[in-house]
Amino acid sequence: MNALVLKLLAQRIALALLSVLAVSVIVFAITAVLPGDAAQEQLGQDATPEALAALRTQMGLDVPAPQRYLHWLGAMLRGDLGTSSTTQLPVAELIGSRLPNSLLLAAVTALFSVPIALTLGVASAVWRGSWFDRAASTSAVAVVSVPEFLVATLAVLVFAVQLRWLPALSYVSDIESLGQLLRAFAMPVLTLCCVIVAQMMRMSRAAVIDQLEAPYVEMVRLKGASPLRIVLAHALPNAVGPIANAVALSLSYLLGGVIIVETIFNYPGIAKLMVDGVSQRDMPLVQACAMLFCAGYLILVTTADIFGIVANPRLRHR
């Protein structure tokens, strides 16, 4: 590893930290301008002026916003995510009960989708223009064009209600064996794979094709290397950057963007927690979730960047 690589890495990480800070301001500002506050939402039809005022004081909503922001940021840096304004439970506890579920679902989905997408993508790049390439690309576009709620609902109707092979809901609390895990996750994972495989596959296909058309590959071919070696040892390492970015983007979606899948399968993940938080105007919870999603996204994208830098032979061998 040389000085240039280290400098690039340090830059990336510093940029990521700066982004987190900027995001925190935006998150706080946006949650502050949302119409209605937690007190109003909690009382709903029962809101009377006195009850509202009492509840606002109880929730600390009567302090000016900038002061609340500094206080909140300071606490966040100390690892204190605050207390949910509607349940009075620590936000860390609420998130802690849901995050493992979301990570598990994301991990299982990644386990299936990433190898499938990369294999298909690289294969279509190698045989570009062939019937295989055309079939794979067309079906990828077709699958990604179907909305996920349709895939999920159809899967439930067919496999749970009609055939009764799989449970209609995904219960993580009942999972004791690998078989149960597969049964509970089969439909959510299938649905999510439909959404993310296509994107990763097309990105890796494009990246590999890009490299295969570069002059140095011509050189390798003239040298007499086998097609397998051309792809795996020469083109792929140079394509890792864009591919890792595509994978990171898709995986970050799995953390916070799976609300539809969580709703249809009643899966207790973190996206649903955040949506509940928004509908109840539980700002500490919403802010913590938003920060978590942004941090997760930045970690993934930065990791992808680091991968790209470290794997890039031109930077490594300078």
């Binding site: 109707l157 209609a168 709703t263 399968f265 009643n266």
Partner: peptide
Amino acid sequence: FVGIGDESARVNALLSGG
């Protein structure tokens, strides 16, 4: 006792025997 917010998810859960 669980809560399922989505009505069609509730009905599907019932009809699938869950």
